[in-house]
Structures are given as C-alpha cells and as structure tokens.
Design a protein around this nucleic acid. Structure first.
Length: 226
DNA sequence: GACCAGGCACATC
DNA sequence: GATGTGCATGGT
C-alpha cells in the first residue's frame, strides 16, 4: 500500500521509496496470533532464521496449540526446544512470564486479551518481565493489529544516518516522530517497519554508503526539509 | 575467528 | 538519565 503523495512529509517519501524498491514484505511471518507473540520474544537481538528453527521445534512438539498448555511446559524442556534462538534460558523465562500473565489475568485467552483497549494493553505488556518497548509494540501491531509504530535498532541507525533522527534519541521520541507524520493505518505501520528491517539487513550494514540505497535521494531531501 | 542479529533487565555511576 | 554487561546460537 502506497501512501498518498498529497502533503508528503519526508517520512512518507522514504516509505514510498522503500515500498517501490522492495514491494510488500508480508509481515509478520507467523501461523497464529500466539505464534506471532512467541516469535516477537524469541527474535530479541536474534536473527529470524534462528527463531524459525526454535518455532519449528515448538510446533513439532505441539507446544503452540494453546497458551495454557505452553505455560505448563517445564522451563528445562522449553529451553531445550528454543535452543537455536539463543539466550535460551532467559527467553524460556520470558515466554513463561508472558503466558503466566495471560493465564492469570485472562484465563489464557488471547481473544480476551485482544479485546483490551490499546493504552491499557501497552501498560500491561510492559509490566511483563522480558517484554520491553519494541517487543510490546511488535505484539500490538502484528498480533493485535493496533496502529502502533515499532522502533528498532535499524530505525534509529538508518534514520539518524539520513539525518532525520538525532543520535541517542529515545524510543518514545522516535516513535512519536513516525506517528505524527504517518497516517495511523495498521497496514502502513506494518509495512514500514518490515521495510526498514529489510533495508537494514540488505544495505546499511553490508554497504553503508551504497550508491543503490533506496533512500539515497531522501538524504538529499533531508538537508533541505528537515 | 571475529562480528552480528527484528532486546531486555539489572548493576553501577 | 546514561553507560556497561550478561545472555548464546548460528550465519557470514
């Protein structure tokens, strides 16, 4: 989905450039809402291909059929299953912290959790030990379809490199910048974050000054407009 | 063999 | 509030 060009802010221009260059990214790659949430925790500071292996293990072991069942798996067994995703001891705890919260407050029902108002959901998820701002917002956007912009390390790196974000800017300030300058549409927020990650993986680490960077022209714009 | 990946909590200053 | 550190596997 392209953003209408009328009153194009620079972040909209950047989005359209990325979308023209890469096309839709079809995020989040998960078979169910529960799987999306599990993936969001497992992918913390971890390459997605390693997370896929862990999810495959969980699926094969029948652990993803219900959050309540998942919560009953022992920490030791869970650690073994998610081993390929790294940090398996901390992540096993974090996963169980989430399912524990879900079971305790909502009887293990993601449908009930899905009916919670966005502001409250934001506060509650952040209270779960192991869920920080990025994981929380990934869950809100990709599992519960709330129009929340997800900021990650790539977002800060890329947009500070292009002069749109100051170095060391807080999570909230970067998020506010995007929220203010984009139409509050789930599809746009979904695609934008995915496109930023794609760009980060594809260009900005391997070839920081690559001439073919889709945002090259945006950098020139930034000097005049930002 | 070094470096990095779709973070977070906790300790310390 | 800012900065440093542990957590760990697997690909480049």
């Amino acid at each position: 989905m392209q953003i209408q060009r009328r009153r194009c802010g620079i972040l909209r221009v950047a989005y359209n450039k990325l979308y023209e260059f890469y096309g839709p990214q079809h995020w989040w790659p998960g078979r169910s809402r529960f799987e999306v949430i599990i993936g969001a925790i497992l992918t913390q500071n971890t390459a997605w291909r390693n997370v896929e292996k862990a999810i495959k293990n969980l699926r094969a072991a029948g652990c993803l059929s219900s959050p309540s069942k998942f919560h009953n798996i022992t920490a030791k067994r869970l650690s073994r299953l998610i081993r390929p995703a790294g940090y398996y001891n901390v992540k096993a705890k974090r996963l169980k912290n989430f399912t524990g919260y879900l079971v305790k407050r909502y009887g293990g029902s993601l449908d009930k959790l899905a009916r919670v108002e966005t502001g409250r959901l934001r506060r509650e998820l952040l209270e779960v030990n192991g869920i920080g701002p990025e994981t929380r917002d990934s869950i809100l956007l990709y599992a519960f379809m709330r129009p929340v912009f997800v900021v990650d390390a790539y977002t800060k790196r890329i947009f500070s490199r292009h002069g749109l974000v100051t170095r060391g800017a807080s999570y909230e300030s970067v998020q506010a910048l995007f929220t203010k300058n984009l139409p509050p549409e789930v599809n746009i927020f979904n695609e934008y974050h995915a496109l930023i990650v794609r760009l980060g993986k594809d260009h900005c680490r391997k070839r920081p000054r690559c001439e073919e960077c889709p945002l090259k022209s945006v950098k020139l714009l930034a000097k005049h407009l930002w």
